[in-house]
């Protein structure tokens, strides 16, 4: 009897297992079609030979990666020297994205904290206000930013009118403009996860810290920030990753001098000047970079979670 019951039980769990596999199928399909297939395609293309008017020739080569890291002269016959051009573009992008993340954190944390400490009804309004810009397409918002920042734009007009400056300040086509663009584009991604963390924070802990002689600043540093660290890390990832690959803000606000990875890759697939394998190779390098950073942050996150719950 016992044996029969056990068999029956395992047969049923088999049924559950197969049902589960079938139910998971749509998710797998979406993952394959929209994530794995494009990445695989990119990976394959990065090892192919370029066709001059765009497209590829199906012939294996490491030329794209070689071009990224090395300079072999105009005709490719000189000894290989490390080519810093693209590496520098990457470095500049990481730096820009890092700075944008830092600025977003600097402004986003107090904003999120402010919203989370409002009465429940007003909180919803604030969150709604934060998300309003997202009702307008990013391209349109970035173009508008261009008009705001240009020499004769409202920002300069305002600064001139207040007498803070005598001549228009050059903002457009500088790194600062790219920064402003990135910061503006991704700030809500910083605010929302931190807000979610602060909202769950037990404010009795702040009272306990104050009761134990901690000043407001010490309480923030030693109690609040460690408690909401998962939200801070999530916000940093959500701002850093898209900033790193962004091309709208650098293209439209930064001008030709302030090339970033996103623009570099975009160029390779646009018009006749493109080089698809090179674009694919640059994408793969970017992807690897992002994955390494994410893995590092994920480990931090796991540690923060463990500390918050254990």
């Amino acid at each position: 009897m016992a044996g029969a019951a056990a068999t029956g039980g395992s047969a049923r769990s088999d049924t559950y297992a197969s049902a589960r596999n079938w139910l998971l199928l749509p998710s797998w399909a979406v993952l394959c079609i929209f994530v794995l297939a494009p990445v695989a395609m990119m990976l394959v293309y990065s090892f192919l030979t370029k066709e001059f008017r765009g497209g590829v020739i199906w012939e294996f080569t490491l030329a794209a990666y070689d071009q990224f890291f090395f300079d072999r002269g105009l005709f490719g016959d000189e000894p290989a020297r490390i080519d810093w051009t693209y590496i520098l573009i990457f470095w500049r992008s990481i730096w820009q994205a890092g700075l944008a993340t830092f600025l977003a954190l600097l402004i986003g944390f107090p904003t999120a904290y402010f919203i989370a400490t409002r009465p429940a009804q007003t909180r919803t309004v604030w969150v709604f206000l934060i998300t309003i810009p997202y009702w307008v397409n990013l391209l349109i918002r970035t173009v508008s930013m261009k008009f705001l920042l240009r020499d004769q734009g409202p920002l300069n007009d305002f600064l001139l009118a207040t007498g803070l400056i005598d001549d228009p300040v050059r903002i457009i086509n500088t790194n600062a403009a790219v920064q402003i663009g990135l910061f503006y584009s991704y700030l809500p991604f910083m605010v929302l996860p931190i807000y979610a963390s602060v909202e769950r924070y037990n404010f009795a802990l702040s009272e306990a810290a104050a009761d134990l002689y901690a000043s407001k600043w010490t309480t923030l540093r030693r109690i609040v920030i460690p408690s909401v660290r998962p939200g801070i890390i999530a916000g940093c990832i959500l701002v850093f990753v898209p900033s790193l690959g962004a091309f709208l803000a650098p293209d439209l606000l930064g001008g030709a001098k302030n090339f970033m990875i996103g623009s570099l890759i975009e160029e390779q697939f646009k018009g006749n000047a493109g080089n698809w394998p090179f674009g694919a190779a640059a994408s793969m390098i970017l992807l690897t970079l992002v994955l390494v950073i994410l893995m590092f942050l994920a480990r931090q996150q796991a540690r923060a979670d463990r500390e918050a719950t254990s």
Partner: peptide, 12 residues
């Protein structure tokens, strides 16, 4: 100093 109702110990 205060002993809080739900203790308010620092979890981290």
């Amino acid at each position: 100093n205060t002993v809080f109702q739900n203790y308010a110990l620092f979890p981290h």
